[in-house]
Design a protein around this nucleic acid. Structure first.
Lengths: 208, 208
DNA sequence: CTGAAAATGTTAAATAGGCTACAGTTACAT
DNA sequence: ATGTAACTGTAGCCTATTTAACATTTTCAG
């Protein structure tokens, strides 16, 4: 059940039909509860998707890398149930629902692309669900392993707090596990950035 | 964040284009890992969607009630990442990917229906993710509350084991909570079937 | 009708991970 | 440059859940 989140979905040809918009770090592209209209394609940058749970806590759902969609939930004019916050300055293309529907009539092959992108999203959500069945060590291992796949290197672009929010653990637990791994030489820290030294160890931990 | 899973998505008009198939209790409609081709619409019956986690445990993802889609994941000829097991004898309609794409060209309004159904699915997955942030009592409360919505009555169609698998708790924890609720008059048992007597209590617990 | 399998009831012990609290460091904005 | 905010390091206590272990009851297939 290896999950590689860096599939490229080739939307390039259709970008000219979208509305290009720029967002700076920490701006939100859309917010939970607001009414959306259409969806977004991330062309450049980095965005994280968070959601507020019933009990008011914020959880990070996933990180969107370029060439992925976000905000599909509100294609049918429903309210967003997540918030998209910009991590690195981003270029996104907005596709209003109506426009997109027209566009699809003209380009039926778009449906395949769209459904692929959405299914990919669903897979990510499913992975997040499966996370719960694991120990905290496994949760972190899986997360880091996936992140490395996404970014194709072994530098972890998230702070302890983010890792906690991603896994649903507390920062203290995250810290404890990371410390353990550091001592075992699985990770290394430089300038408060973690680097994975033994990716195989992580892979083993989650049985891949 | 009220989640009512019993929206009706009106696929009736299009069923004649699908392939009708019958399934008996405990048969599986599709299995994790096998390659799928298209998706299914549940017309009658009851189906549960389960998935194997990386660590090999089985988790129930959700229960599909009539008028919902399943198996959308493999619309693009990818392998299923869940298994659909029939709970009550079911009538389903299968829409092969190619057929459906053709169909959509002829009936563009189908896209709206399709996207609605898929987005609904995503919402269910998200709810399942948010479950983790809750206490075990809340997890169960939310689950039972949703199930009641789905079935429009207060009889719980799942055994302790199922409830455990749905929430990710152990059966013992489920048993403890249920016992507590029984003593408090929130539930009642008859012939090993649980009945919700005070739905408002559950609603309160999850802050709706 | 009967034996095995599934579901439930119950207890006790072990522990993982939560929460609190505070201190030291680094980053960044003005 | 400097003060504040964000991030990290660390300890200790506590309790909700898990694990393990068994007994009892019900279901159901052959």
């Amino acid at each position: 059940m290896a999950t590689v989140y860096n599939h490229v979905f080739d939307w390039e040809a259709y970008l000219k039909f979208g509305m290009r918009r720029f967002f700076r770090k920490n701006e939100s592209i859309y917010s939970q509860g607001t009414c959306g209209e259409g969806f977004y394609y991330l062309n450049k940058g980095l965005v994280r998707i968070v959601t507020k749970t019933a009990s008011g806590k914020e959880r990070m759902l996933n990180i969107v890398i370029p060439h992925q969609l976000m905000g599909v939930q509100s294609l049918d004019q429903k309210t967003h149930f997540t918030t998209a916050i910009v991590v690195k300055d981003s270029v996104v293309y907005h596709f209003p629902a109506n426009e997109f529907r027209k566009l699809m009539v003209a380009h039926p092959e778009l449906f395949k692309l769209f459904s692929k992108s959405v299914i990919h999203k669903m897979k990510i959500l499913l992975d997040r669900i499966n996370l719960n069945a694991l120990t905290s060590e496994q949760k972190l291992a899986l997360l880091l392993h996936n992140i490395c796949d996404e970014f194709q290197n072994y530098e972890i672009p998230l702070c302890q707090h983010d890792l906690a929010s991603c896994t649903g653990l507390t920062r203290i637990t995250v810290y404890k596990v990371l410390k353990q791994w550091q001592e075992a030489g699985i990770l290394e820290v430089q300038k408060r950035k973690y680097y994975i030294k033994k990716p195989d160890f992580l892979r083993n931990l989650v049985g891949r």
